[in-house]
Structures are given as C-alpha cells and as structure tokens.
Amino acid sequence: MSALIKVEGLTRVFDVSKPWLNRVIERKPRALLTAVSDVSFEIEENSVYALVGESGSGKSTIGKIMVGLVPPSKGKVEVDGVDLATEKDNAKVEAVRAEIQMIFQDPYASLNPRWRVRNIIAEPVAAKGGDTKGLAEKLLEQVGLSAADASKYPHEFSGGQRQRICIARALASNPKIIVCDEPTSALDVSVQSQVLNLMTDLREELGLTYLFISHDLTVVQHMADKIGVLYLGRLVEEAPRDRLFSAPKHPYTQMLFDAAPRMDAFGREVEPPKGEIPDAINPPPGCAFHPRCPIAIDRCRTERPLMRPIGDTRVACHRAE
C-alpha cells in the first residue's frame, strides 16, 4: 500500500501577541503559540489514521491544515503527491481539494440554519458548477435518512441525524479523504454507535481514507488502524492500533491510558496523573512532557527527543525501549 497523505515536519505557529501599542507600553514581548511542532506521519490509502491528545495538543490544527483551512508555517502536507500550500498549478490544487472533505465536531454549529438540507448537501458540488439533481436525496438515503428529508431545515433533526447530514455533505463531492474532527463527541452513546457504524460502512463501500481526530480512547481503539498520540503539538508516539494499546511505549501514552475511565474499573483507587498540560506559548525545554514524566532524566530537560522506531512503533522518548 502506498501513502496517500504525507505529512512532513509540519509546524504551525499562531501569533497571539497583544496589539502593537499594548506591547510597547507594557514592554511585553511577542507571544507565539506553537500549536503544531515538527509533526511527520503518513496515511495509507483506505485506512483510518487517528490522532489523539488532550485539548491544546494540536490535533484539530493538523486537521485544519490538511483540508487547507489553515496554512502551515513550516513543513508540508502532500496529498497524492501534491503539496497544497506551494503547488502553483491551480487545476491540480482544485482536484486534490475536492478529494478532501471534513466533518466537524458540533453538528449544531456546522449546518447553516437558514438553508434547506438539500442545498446544504449539494453545496460542495454546486460550488463547482456540477450537476446536483437528485444528489441530496441519494446521499440522504445512503446515510440512513429518507429522501423526503431534503426539503427540511436543520433544526428539524436530532444531533445524530444532523451529523448524518454533515456526513452526506462531506460525501457529495466524491472525496477520497475525510477529516473527521471529533465527529461523535457531541452525541449520546447510543447515537454515537450508530454514527460510527455508518462511518465504518461508508469506508468499506466507497474506499475512503479517514483522518480521525478524537480525545476518546475507546472510540479511537474501535475505529483506527494506526494511531498517533500528540502532546503539546508534538507527535510523541505512533503505532498500529493493537500494538499501541498492548504495549504503549511513551510515558505520556501510558499515563493517558491509566487515566481514562474504564467501565470495568469499579471503585478503582489509583493515583491520578500529576500536573496539567503546560502553556504552549512557553513550552518546557527539551521533552515537553518532562515536568510530568515519572521517569525523566537530565537529558530529557535539555534535549528534545526525536522520533525513532522500535519495532512497529515510532516513539519520541529518550528512555523508551
């Protein structure tokens, strides 16, 4: 299998400084927030690659860079061999862009309340002047709603149904890749399982590739083929699903697994993890995780660990073996 998406040395820095005058008066330096820092990975065709991490780990920013909503500061994302940020040939960029679609977290905020469902779903095709006749109806049935729903407005649907509409819209332009940013976080458990099943079915039917962004380890474990763990904008570990869950190498991954609530852990008494995610504007030097790491040594405080392979796993930790 070949890599459909190649992400190399991806970095995104946001300028969160105060306005110029305030900086001068208060003698404050520029504040730069590194949301994504030197992240590299590859996604194979027809696979599900999941990014997990806590809030502020940069997972959504990576998703946005991939669909072109945010340009990268450094590094590149290559889809089908085309680098979206630098490619000069507009026809190529357009072709690749149509292949990538996105599903957002909040189905209440991502559908225009004043548009009929038919227009919402057909928009990706209509925007390019394509033929949209009967398209919305066909897609609605494909995602488990009825064709008659096309003339309704979003407020007439429940959360799970709205997320189905979002999926239908994402499918409208026949994409190869769908970036799913926390697609089920806003849904109830019983509805979540319906949406996840739908996504699994569609992937098989249409040969889709998913970049699946989530903070929920159980959902990721169910959906993903390969998982990348992010911490403070850095990829700290990447491994195939079963390997990551059976043998997590990075101390942060281990901490995350231990902290996640488990349904079989009745009255579990464990020492909860220490500390919180540090400030991304002034990240700790060396390994970003060292202030919370139980096995940190002096080297971790000064030298940022590079990704290195251990078996099928890639891990950025000086002490992992």
């Binding site: 458990v189 399982s193 699994t200 159980t218 169910h222 959906m223 488990r262």
Partner: peptide
Amino acid sequence: LMASTPLASQGRKRLVQ
C-alpha cells in the same frame, strides 16, 4: 447502552446499536 460503548464491543467490527 452498555453494549453500544466501543469498549464493550471490542473486537467486533460493528458496534451494537
């Protein structure tokens, strides 16, 4: 509700819904 959580359906390709 219990069966439809991804953890309980582990190893199954589809979640119970």
